[in-house]
Write a protein that binds this DNA or RNA. Structure first.
Length: 561
RNA sequence: GCCCCCAUCGUCUAGUGGCCUAGGAUACCGGCUUUUCAUGCCGGCGACAGGGGUUCGAGUCCCCUUGGGGGUACCA
């Protein structure tokens, strides 16, 4: 049949030229369900999708999968959007962006799902099923008791569409199940290769729930088709869902997108990173680990560091370098460099990345990020009252040790130091950031330079520091402060240079090392032993406040002996 | 239990049959710098899970074992 062959090649040729002219745009999506903030693992999934879109000049779509009305958490869409924005990942279509394939909330697409559901019902690829959740649970339980594998067995005769509708109209809980084809299904995965699932492990599954909402599987397949999604990059936990999706695509006559299942991210101990880790840690009185993107934001990480770090979880550019800007990552990214091995989330390495990024970004960028951190802190820690230090319980061990260097402010209801800093001058904050260079995360900056932003009376002298640098040797440190106070009061040029000259002179006169004089000053002025360089610290504090604090420190001596 | 995926330093990874005496990063250890903290600089420790094949040659290919993980919902 030469004629037939000819026709085929002609069609193929025209198709080919067409694809050369207008190459099909890559369209990828991230489809979170609104159950809270964006999980860090979810962020990695977003990132890879976003990278692929940006790399190829395609579109990145955000779709909200809100088909489970029982799990819906009120504010989550706004939170997820905020997290995404903070990370610097924008979306071309979706909430707030619009787009021609909307609506992008699945709860607003129910009619669409119903229409496709009808097609499946009519073609016999789906059927009404009458078992209640309780009945199903009982059957599973029974199977477990008898050490049998449970799998849903398709009712024989199947209820007709009319019977199903009648039952539903009568108020019975009715679902719609998809009829699996009864053959093995092979999924082609861009990362994992071909994966075949045996037919007998593939049971008929629910595609419409009793509340008439579609299940994830169904809505996802319909929307991916209608939104013309070309690539699905998602976590490996979805791998076993894929044959279901493939089977539905075939029944509906949809072309399957390309699939790529990403390795999963775990805690260092191999457990899943879960929101519940936070509650557990709090219960044990430990600092909760960061799990959601917002946690990292509130812990003072830079999005640059987070993005860079998670990009390396399951992907590598293959060079002996690993710190890249987002733009560099876009140009380096490719799906075939994504690995198959699950990764553990190493916070130590993240911290190192953050430290490096903090030293690398432009000063203005760093300032903006610091301000953001400060205001997030201020917002989540409303002004603390006197009740802040909880009623001094059976306070043994840990509490005692934690108290001195913690950042608890003094008794009176006072705004947290972060809130004060958030409103500080740009020039001041920029200077603070400069002086704290080398910090790991923003809380380090607050710990180190916060003393500049509290009132003189709010300085609490850390007993350990006092003992070590002031009280020992019969209060030598206090004596030194007395002398210094006199000299400092006489300083007219309150500058780093003058201060440095003065203090060095004192060192020479007394034959002591700088440390012996810097430390007492630090304690007097900050309450502890940590601050930026002492000269810069004093300069920033100013003469009035410096001398006031030294005076107050010296006077506190009698009080604590 | 059943189905599926995975396997290089503690951790993230490079490695696509000879370039591997296995590279980088981080952590850890040591030294130097230093006014505290944090940095910075230099050096060190440290891995191909085990067993069989294939091949002149295997971290790289195949099989088994072991280990880890995922799935097994009217969740997504």
């Amino acid at each position: 049949m030469p004629a037939g062959t000819h026709v085929t090649t002609t069609r193929l040729a025209s198709w080919m030229t067409e694809t050369v002219d207008k190459k099909p745009r890559v369209r990828v999506r991230f489809a979170p369900s609104p159950t809270g903030y964006l999980h860090i693992g979810g962020a990695r999934t977003v990132l890879f999708n976003w990278l692929l879109a940006r790399k190829t000049g395609g579109a990145f779509i955000l779709r909200i999968e809100d088909t489970d009305r029982t799990r819906h958490v009120g504010d989550s869409v706004r939170k997820i959007l905020d997290d995404l924005r903070w990370l610097g990942l924008d979306w071309d279509e979706g909430p707030e962006a619009g787009g021609e394939f909307g609506p992008y909330f699945q709860s607003q697409r129910l009619d669409t799902y119903d229409a496709h559901l009808d097609r499946l019902l009519q073609s016999g690829d789906a059927y009404y099923a009458m078992e209640t959740p309780e009945e199903l649970a009982a059957m599973r339980e029974k199977a477990r008791a008898e050490k049998r594998d449970f799998s849903y067995s398709r009712p024989d005769p199947l209820p007709t569409i009319e019977q199903g509708k009648a039952a539903r109209d009568a108020g019975r809980p009715v679902v719609v199940r998809f009829k699996m084809p009864g053959t093995d299904i092979t999924v082609v995965d861009e990362i994992l290769g071909e994966v075949t699932m045996p037919a007998d492990t593939l049971e008929d599954f629910v595609i419409q729930k009793a509340d008439r909402f579609p299940t994830y599987h169904f809505a996802c397949v319909v929307d991916d088709e209608l939104m013309e999604i070309t690539h699905v990059l998602r976590g490996q936990e979805h791998l076993m869902n894929t044959p279901k999706h493939v089977a539905m695509q075939r029944a509906l006559g949809f072309a399957a997108p390309l699939y790529a299942h990403l390795p999963i991210i775990f805690n260092m101990d191999g457990s899943k990173m879960s929101k519940r880790d936070k509650e557990k840690a709090i219960k044990r009185g430990e600092t909760p680990p960061e799990i959601e993107v917002h946690d990292f934001r509130a812990s003072g990480y830079l999005p640059e560091a987070i993005i860079n770090f998670i990009s390396l979880l399951g992907w590598s550019p293959g060079a002996d370098r690993e710190q890249f800007t987002l733009e560099e990552t876009v140009s380096l990214f490719s799906v075939d460099r994504i690995g198959k091995t699950n990764a553990k989330f190493d916070r130590e390495k993240l911290i190192a990345f953050n430290r490096d990024w903090a030293g690398k970004v432009a000063p203005d960028r760093l300032l903006a990020a610091f301000r953001d951190y400060l205001s997030v802190c201020a917002a989540s820690n409303p002004p603390t009252g006197p009740d802040d230090i909880d009623g001094a319980g059976p306070g043994d061990g840990p509490a005692d040790r934690a108290a001195p260097d913690s950042d608890r402010r003094g008794g009176a209801a006072e705004a947290p130091v972060e809130a004060v800093m958030a409103n500080a001058d740009a020039a001041v904050l920029r200077r603070v950031l400069e002086l704290c260079a080398g910090f790991r995360t923003f809380p380090d900056v607050v710990k180190k330079a916060g003393f500049l932003f509290v009132s003189d009376d709010a300085i609490e002298f850390d007993p350990k520091a006092v003992k070590k640098v002031l009280a020992k040797n019969d209060g030598a440190g206090y004596a030194l402060l007395d002398e210094l106070l006199l000299k400092l009061e006489g300083v007219t040029d309150w500058s780093v240079g003058a201060l440095e000259a003065l203090i060095n002179r004192v060192c020479d006169e007394k034959g002591i090392k700088l440390g012996n004089i810097a430390q007492p000053l630090r304690v007097a002025v900050t309450g502890g032993t940590i601050s930026p360089s002492i000269f810069e610290s004093l300069e920033m504090l100013g003469k009035v406040r410096t001398t006031a604090r030294i005076r107050r420190c010296v006077e506190s001596r009698s009080a604590d002996v």
